[in-house]
Simulated scan of single mutants.
Amino acid sequence: MTYPVAATADTPQIRFNKVPEVTPYFWAIKIMATTVGETGADYLIFKMGLGLQMTSILMAVVLVAILIWQFRTDRYTPWVYWLAVTMISVVGTLITDSLSDGYGVPLGVSTAVFIVALIMTFAVWYLREHTLSIHSIDTPAREGFYWLAVLFTFALGTAAGDLLAERLGLGYLPSTFLFGAAILVVIGLWRAGIIGAVTAFWLAYILTRPLGASFGDFLSQPLPNGGLGLGTTTTSLVFLGVILALVGYLTLSGVDREDNARAE
């Protein structure tokens, strides 16, 4: 593992942050990755005919391989990072679907369980590292907490989004607007100084998952189910194409990379 560059007696260790700067590109790709997680999982299960269990196993194996790759990089690398986010989006969706469809766990229970799991992750992370800032993801431990929190946000967002849109009958588009409004409230609270930047970031990060999932379902689901009927294939391919274009731009431009690394 290569987090710090090798140090000598005359040179300090240099730590590079492993996640991107929070820019409009960050939120755009994150929301689209969320949508791909929702529609992509459905595509593999139903269109490819793999079934829920086989899809879950295969995607979990792929995710582990990608995270190993991500951990072995010594700094933020757009292609690797966003590949990990997209795959975690798929796996987070599959975890919730497996609980509800495979084991009959009510979505309300899944939502509560993932809320508790996320709170516990943040609590242990803060007690150990004294920060939850994504500007300091520069050690293996912090990166481990970060990706665990990200996984729980995706699983939680899937459960909460499905609970509102399907079980409670709110519908996909109204759910999209509801979660979008909630994000605007978070932004307003942050700008008013009521909540800090770190709290605002994680609240928005959590809410963008059900936002993207509800929007993805709205685009892909048939008209009788409250969607536009574009299908999972078209929706997944369109969003994947935009993600690839944006990640390519970020790789070439470096606009979402931190200018300064930490020296110790």
Rank of each mutant, 00 (worst) to 15 (best):
T2H: 14
A6H: 10
T8A: 13
P12S: 15
Q13K: 15
I14N: 08
R15G: 09
F16D: 12
K18F: 12
V22W: 01
V22I: 14
W27N: 04
K30Y: 11
K30G: 05
I31S: 07
A33K: 01
T34N: 14
T35A: 15
T35R: 04
V36C: 11
E38F: 03
G49I: 01
G51W: 02
G51V: 06
V64G: 10
A65K: 06
W69E: 05
R72Q: 10
D74K: 09
W79N: 10
W79K: 07
V80H: 06
L83H: 03
T86N: 13
I88S: 07
V90F: 13
T96W: 00
D97W: 03
S98F: 06
L99D: 08
S100I: 04
V105S: 05
L107R: 10
G108A: 15
V109C: 07
T111L: 14
I115D: 12
I119T: 15
A123L: 09
V124D: 12
W125V: 08
W125R: 08
L127E: 13
E129K: 01
H130Y: 03
L132P: 00
S133I: 00
S136G: 03
S136Q: 12
D138S: 10
L151P: 02
T153K: 03
L156R: 07
A160W: 05
A160R: 04
G161E: 09
D162Q: 13
D162M: 15
A165R: 00
L168E: 08
G171T: 02
S175E: 00
F177V: 03
L178Q: 04
F179H: 02
G180R: 08
A181V: 01
V186T: 10
F201N: 13
F201G: 08
L203W: 03
P210D: 03
S214Y: 00
F215N: 14
F218T: 09
L219F: 06
L219R: 04
S220D: 07
P224Y: 08
G227M: 01
L228N: 06
L230A: 14
L237D: 14
G241Y: 09
G241K: 07
I243C: 11
V247S: 04
V247I: 14
Y249K: 07
S253H: 10
D256A: 08
R257Y: 01
E258L: 11
N260A: 13
E264T: 02
